[in-house]
Write a protein that binds this DNA or RNA. Structure first.
Lengths: 211, 211
DNA sequence: AATTGATTTAAACAGATTTTTAAAAAATAT
DNA sequence: ATATTTTTTAAAAATCTGTTTAAATCAATT
């Protein structure tokens, strides 16, 4: 009986707790989320949280790792795809992130809070750190620069700009919505528009060579 | 005697507690900051926190409001200055924010966490909400568009881009430092460079009319 | 129907955390 | 110097929070 409990994803108590915990931890962080609140929101007895997950910390780590993996999921494959150009990769990456963030708008704040709290501890344990440095995309980047006779003094700005333009609006969405009165739908439409716009802006920057 | 307690800023017990609280609340948030830790770090008895500030929540609200005001401080004056052009205002705003964020690098995460937690509650109480909509800068913006025959379909993107490019790198700084090995000094140099770069990028975007 | 094991519950526990109290110490005023 | 007020302290009280316990319920198996 114990064997097949986790074979199919069910709407079991265990799953209910985990989903509520994911929502609350992601939204409010570890310290502000109380085990009693998770239990209340899932409609289960407090003891069941410890019965299924042993401890609050255990449950949090589970969610945390899943959130982190969601955040960096499938980047490596995109970066190493031999069938897409440099520009296409940028476009695909941005589009991929915008889709993911529309589905998980609280993820940016969670991830950056977590990185802030754990300077490098767990980021390195996720094992993506050094993989990124040797991707096919980096090769294409060099080729792109050579072909177009572009000299970039500090590519760090480009990297920052890309993630800033893509991710930051989601972190700031409560402020933006509050200031403009936009609904979530209208905000998401705006983000959809950015799939096209951000790559155009980024390549404008590259060509301007302002670094 | 009660009267002049707050007249001159002293290194009194009250001030010590407040400064430690500011640092810890800003870095770790309300729930993760324990009154004992504040007391220990300030080298004072725990009871003194309640003696001077009545409660943890009270103390937090004090810090929170000051942080929020720091974040939006002097914007209005910049926006309404009749002696600067539209472009100069953008440059001054960005330069102002970068200077402020180099001094207070934890502010972005604090502010956005707070806005996330309190959807609109206190943001409106700060009283800056509607002032911004009727600034001299907005007039200049319209004139700028007319003079240069520019039609911007969605100026929201421009607003988002400006704050994204300026503020986001600070929120992401632990990640950036971890991934690049940059020291705080090197990171700050990068931010200083952006004072010139961001306005150039923004005006490139405006002129491209890609909206 | 009885047995077994898994799940759930209410209650209590233990430790952490915030707040209060009452007395001592220090500073200030008379 | 004495009295008064302010500040500080140690201890306790009150509350909150994560975890455990032991019994009850449920589901499946024999």
């Amino acid at each position: 009986m114990i064997e097949n409990v986790n074979i199919l994803p069910n709407t079991s108590t265990e799953e209910k707790i985990k989903e509520t915990a994911r929502r609350m931890f992601t939204k409010k962080g570890y310290a502000a989320t109380k085990t009693r609140d998770i239990a209340d929101e899932s409609g289960i007895n407090i003891a069941l949280l410890n019965y299924y997950f042993r401890s609050k910390e255990n449950l949090y780590e589970l969610i945390m790792i899943e959130n982190m993996q969601l955040f960096i999921h499938s980047i490596i494959e995109i970066l190493n795809n031999k069938n897409t150009t440099f520009r296409e990769k940028i476009e695909i990456l941005i589009s991929h992130y915008i889709d993911m963030l529309i589905k998980n708008p609280d993820l940016p704040m969670f991830v950056f809070n977590e990185i802030n709290a754990n300077p490098q501890n767990l980021i390195e344990k996720l094992g993506v750190n050094k993989q990124i440095l040797n991707t096919y995309m980096l090769q294409q980047w060099q080729e792109y620069l050579n072909e177009n006779k572009i000299i970039i003094v500090n590519p760090m700005h480009l990297f920052m700009n890309t993630i800033s333009l893509t991710i930051f609006p989601f972190a700031a969405s409560p402020m933006i919505k509050n200031r403009t009165g936009f609904s979530t739908e209208k905000f998401n439409d705006l983000m959809q528009e950015r799939k096209k716009l951000i790559p155009e802006w980024i390549f404008m920057m590259i060509k301007s060579q302002n670094f």
